[in-house]
Structure formats: structure tokens, C-alpha cells
Simulated assay, not measured.
Amino acid sequence: MPVPNSDDVAEVVAVLAAHAADVDARSRFPVESFAQLRRRGYLGLLVPAEYGGMGGGLTELTALAQQFAGGCLSTAMSWAMHCQQTDLVVRHATPELRARLLPRIAAGEVYLASVTTESSKGGHLLSAHDALRGADGYSLDREAPVVTGGMHADGFLITMRDGPDAAEHEVTLVYADSADLKIEQTAVWQTMGMRGTDSVGVRLVGRVAPDCVVGERGKFRQVAADSMVPVGHLAWSACWLGAARAVFGQLVRRIAAPRQKSGGPDVNSPLVQERVARIRLDLELVSAYLGKVTEEVGQIRARGGRLDMPAVQIHLNTLKLAASELTFRAADRMVQLAGLAAGYGTDSPLPLERTFRDLRSAALNYSNDRLWTANGTLSWADRAVSLL
């Protein structure tokens, strides 16, 4: 299945945009939008063609994430995280699991959710408390306070401590089909923004087959560095940029249109021109850095290199930091520029108020505090200062 053309993408974006306000207002999962993504094959964007997928790569992922986010950021983020999980399966699952699961993803039958959070450790990715148990070590009882689309997923990739006697850093990633689990919702999702991701708390109880281990047992750190972290930072950043870019385009068109009697920003005002230029600067910087990091990761993967080198990790972390902070700053400036009614009002024809709330979550989605300290530490190991 080839990567779709621009007309097909535009039709999907229109569906996402049509339901975005209701999804946000009712804090519900975007079921209509995901039905489109399933039907048109977008769940299989990263699935190789040999399994029936689109055979897309990171460039296609970041481009589509931007476009989808221009319609509905909650939908785009949920889809992007599904693609992140798909990449893990493609690159690190057993041949048996790939053969069973990838054709179902390509057919739109399986939406994958990620289970990495725990109440005892928050969002720390590389540790786990709940352990695999049983004589064969494949039984699980896992609680997670935040799972994007948790009650709508058809399958889960779950981090588990490798066993009751394993250290918390000995983490194993397993796939579990929703049909093989008892799934209980344990918490609701009532937040300022990103309300449509429906990131509820869940408890998962069940068993997984030995061939459902993704990567080596106890060595999740390796697959996280190769797949989950880089794809996550690229896809999230693309989504944030796409949402900010789309609403900026709407705002510029509104300002540049013939002025109504009610007034509005004066396109000839030097102050307005400067504010527009500053917003544009933030978006340009994020776009350029996203493009360069996408290129770097793609080239390293193509030659079979490692993505856990200090300089590459710094570049990935910097992308997430810059994208989360600069896109939110751009949204904040857009609200100020648009004014009280058009920028701050919930009934404005511009979705600025929703975009502002959604982008405020970006710095919290895997906390920037962790990444600032990580980059500080990593800088001691990259004394050559290998800038991108």
C-alpha cells in the first residue's frame, strides 16, 4: 500500500478538524477520526509493504503528524504514539510476532497503546516495579496511571520488571493483545488540554506468549534508545509544530483579510509585524531542527549505527525541549496578538484557546526537567561539542 497523496491526506485532516472541538469539549476519544485512520490504512504507515503496510519512514511520519495535528492535536498525538509502538514491533519483535501482528496493524485492525507509567515512578521510562511472574515468567498484573487511548486500544506494549527478583532497571517489553487481557479502568482523564487522548488509568491482567517479548528480556533500555525515544521525540515534536503552524496560518489570514468595522490587528502596524515575525521565528526554528534530527536519525539507521551515542541523544532531547517550549511560546504570542475575543474566547472561529491549552502539555509529556538534566550530564561525555 503506497503512502497516500495530498488529496487523501486533506480529506482525513478535514474529518479530524470537524470533530476536534467536540472531542475537546467532551473529553472523549476521537472515535470518528480513528475510524478514518483505520479505514484508509494510516495505522500501517510504518509497517513494511511485505506485511501489507505503507512502508513509510520517519520523514513520512513527521510530515503526516504535522498535517494531522493541524486538524486535531489529540488525534495526531494518539496516532503518533501508535506509530512509535509500531516501530518497536517492526524493529525488535520476534519473527513470529511480526508475522501475526503487522498485517493486522496494516489492515487497521490494531491500534497499539503504550504502557510505561507507574504510580510509584511516574513517567520514568527505563525502570519498572510491576514484575512478570509465574513459573514460566509470562504472567502480568500491571497498573498504569496514564495510558493514551487505553480503553480503545486493540493491543498494548507494556514495560515490566523482568521478574520478582529482578532489579527495577531490568525491564522487559512485552506485547499483549486486548483479547487476552482483563482490562479495568482505574482513573479518569480530566485535564486542561489534550483532552481527546483519553489517557485514563488502567489495570491489565493476563498472560503473554514467550514470542511476545519485544527485544531481549531485561534489556528494554536498548530498544528504547533505538526506537521508542527517537521516534517519540520526532513524532511528538512534529505534532506540536503542526498544531501551532496550522493555527498561525489561520491567524495570519484573518489579520491580512480586509479589516471589519469591529477592527482587529492592523497589518501595517510595526508592533503587529514584529509580533508576527517572532511567532514565525519560533516555528521556523522548530521546523528546521526537526528536519535535521529526522535526517540524522534516518541516516544512522540506514547504516546500522547506534542512536545511544551522547551527541545523538543530546540532539533528540534538544528537539523535544525546543519543540515543546517554542511552539507553546508561539501559541501564547498568538493569543496576545489575536486579542481577548479571537484569541482567548472558547467560541472564537480560531482554535487558539484549545491549541494554547493543548501545547501547554508539551513540556509535561515526559517532563522537560528530566531532559534538561540529562543533556547537562551528556554534555560531559561529548566534549567535542558535536553540534547538529
Rank of each mutant, 00 (worst) to 15 (best):
T355G: 06
W236S: 03
R28K: 13
D198W: 08
V89A: 04
V174P: 00
A80T: 01
A128R: 15
R280A: 05
H124Y: 12
E353I: 10
A49D: 10
A374L: 13
D226P: 00
Q313L: 14
D130V: 02
A363V: 15
R38T: 07
N317K: 15
Y175M: 07
R142Y: 04
E325I: 02
E96I: 03
L126I: 04
R253D: 10
M54H: 10
P258R: 09
A76Q: 03
L241I: 07
D358L: 01
A17Q: 09
Y111F: 14
H82M: 04
W240L: 01
A311T: 05
S324V: 01
Y366A: 03
V200D: 05
P145A: 04
I183P: 04
P164H: 05
D141Q: 09
H152W: 12
S127D: 03
S361N: 08
E11M: 08
A166S: 13
S33Q: 12
G123F: 10
D177Q: 11
L125P: 00
Y175V: 01
R278T: 06
H19S: 07
V286N: 02
V3H: 12
P164T: 05
L316Q: 14
A381W: 14
P95L: 06
A311R: 15
A381K: 15
H233R: 00
L37T: 11
W372L: 13
D162M: 03
S127A: 10
A235D: 00
C72K: 10
T186K: 07
L157E: 01
L73V: 05
V9R: 11
S237T: 00
V12F: 08
V231C: 12
D180S: 12
K219D: 00
L88A: 10
T117I: 02
Y111R: 15
F356Q: 04
V188H: 09
A342P: 15
L101F: 07
T327H: 02
R91T: 12
A69C: 04
A331S: 11
F220R: 11
Q67M: 06
L101V: 04
F29K: 12
A322I: 13
F220K: 06
L241N: 06
M77K: 13
R195D: 02
R203H: 10
Q250H: 06
R133N: 08
A330M: 03
G343T: 14
A10K: 13
T318K: 06
E96G: 04
G201A: 02
F328K: 05
A107Q: 12
A374V: 09
A322L: 14
V147L: 11
G53Q: 12
E168N: 13
Q67Y: 02
T191S: 11
K320V: 02
M77I: 08
